[in-house]
Write a protein that binds this DNA or RNA. Structure first.
Lengths: 223, 223
DNA sequence: TGTACATCAGTGAACGCGCGTTCACTGATGTAC
DNA sequence: TGTACATCAGTGAACGCGCGTTCACTGATGTAC
């Protein structure tokens, strides 16, 4: 009976989700290092050993949370992109959407863009989700007539840029590719500085400054 | 007897230093959250309660490590600055010096520029040391004829920039000040992305890319 | 210079706590015939 | 449709561990007269 088997499987999927949700909630309070299986189980009214039916270890739960967070911020970036219209407007929308998600989920953001967790090695599963925001930005530039930018590049950087050009399929010279990576760095640098408190005393609140950065970096990459 | 009293005080100062050094060493292995007073004491051949003669609590030890780290990276930036010559060269030297320190002390860097530690509130003591790198960059621009840059700024950002102009005593318009903050963000954004592994798959190793960023941001702020 | 006293560093035991993970188990859900 | 068996979810006790902090104490170092 497929229907009955599905019932058990559905229950399993639901509880797996509930465990992750509760873990995310606790993440917000105590951070990644403080996340405790026992506390999660307690909150769900289960005994701690029951969690091992769903996750083989604490690390595997953490890994799933990390992958989920990358996907969530990536999806936020993609959904913010109107997909048509002025490339510059699309670019700005993606910047805003990314920042909005980060501000709404500061601890999940810290989980993926903050300090690495010592003793924890990011598995291969995180590579593709981690690239989604960057790819959303690249996508805007792919179907666009870019202002050509020249510049001298060190041979090492030129090689890296040219290799990226192939992978990304972006129609741009190496200088532009390098600037694109700078823009990507600027995006997350600004979000991190804002969320981690470094702008206190200079541009806090950082909304206007962030919007300004988004514009300047659009120009900077030739949009 | 001043000499004798000094002996005891010197012993105290030395042990305080040894405790901090050992704590720094362990920080590199287990991260801030994993730093344990008992482990530090064990390693120094003391009993854990003895540490309380030197630090009233674990948090106070952490605070000192944070302040020390800000001062160390600030000093690295200041020492890298030749103090004379072409402003652009000084700018590049400061960028390199800052990154070099960060790469040599990745965990101390993560302590100050990584995720905030949940439940830990940075005390006022960190504000001044935290500004040293930024101030080193500002200093280069203070005694320099800058290329004037115009641009539209949102009123909120304009007000923040003008207020900063006064505090920093920098001879530059608000657009330039905003760009300076972007450069500062770019500097630490790039270091963090490098150290935290986000450049793997694109510009790893990041040496050439970082040097390139330093140059482009120098131009960007008008140097 | 010598003695009585005060300060301070370091000890060792204890308090009370939480953690990840394993394991043998019970009872419910699902499967095969 | 009914029965025998297999799978799976969740239990509860236990293992072995480390943590921050307190407290009464001993003995050495420094101070005042």
């Amino acid at each position: 009976m497929t229907a009955t088997r599905t019932a058990r499987e559905r229950a399993r999927a639901e509880l797996t989700q509930e465990i992750k949700d509760e873990a995310r909630r606790q993440l917000a309070e105590v951070g990644a290092h403080g996340l405790s299986l026992r506390a999660v189980a307690r909150e769900l009214g289960m005994v701690s050993s029951a969690l091992y039916r769903y996750f083989p270890s604490r690390d595997s739960l953490l890994t799933e949370l990390i992958v989920d967070a990358y996907n969530a911020i990536g999806e936020a970036a993609e959904k913010a992109d109107p997909g048509e219209g002025e490339p510059r407007d699309r670019w700005l929308a993606i910047w805003q959407g990314t920042r909005d998600w980060a501000r709404a989920h500061p601890h999940e953001y810290a989980l993926i863009y903050g300090s690495p967790i010592p003793g924890y090695a990011a598995p291969q599963d995180t590579v593709v989700p981690a690239a989604r925001v960057a790819l959303a930005l690249v996508k805007v530039m792919t179907h666009t007539e870019l202002r050509a930018i020249d510049g001298e590049l060190a041979p090492e950087l030129r090689a890296q840029a040219e290799s990226l050009t192939k992978v990304l399929g972006v129609m741009a010279g190496p200088e532009t590719v390098a600037r694109l990576i700078m823009a990507w760095t600027q995006l997350f640098g600004a979000i991190s500085f804002d969320l981690f408190g470094q702008y206190v005393g200079s541009v806090d609140p950082a909304d206007a400054f962030f919007a300004h950065s988004a514009k300047r970096m659009a120009e900077f990459v030739g949009l």
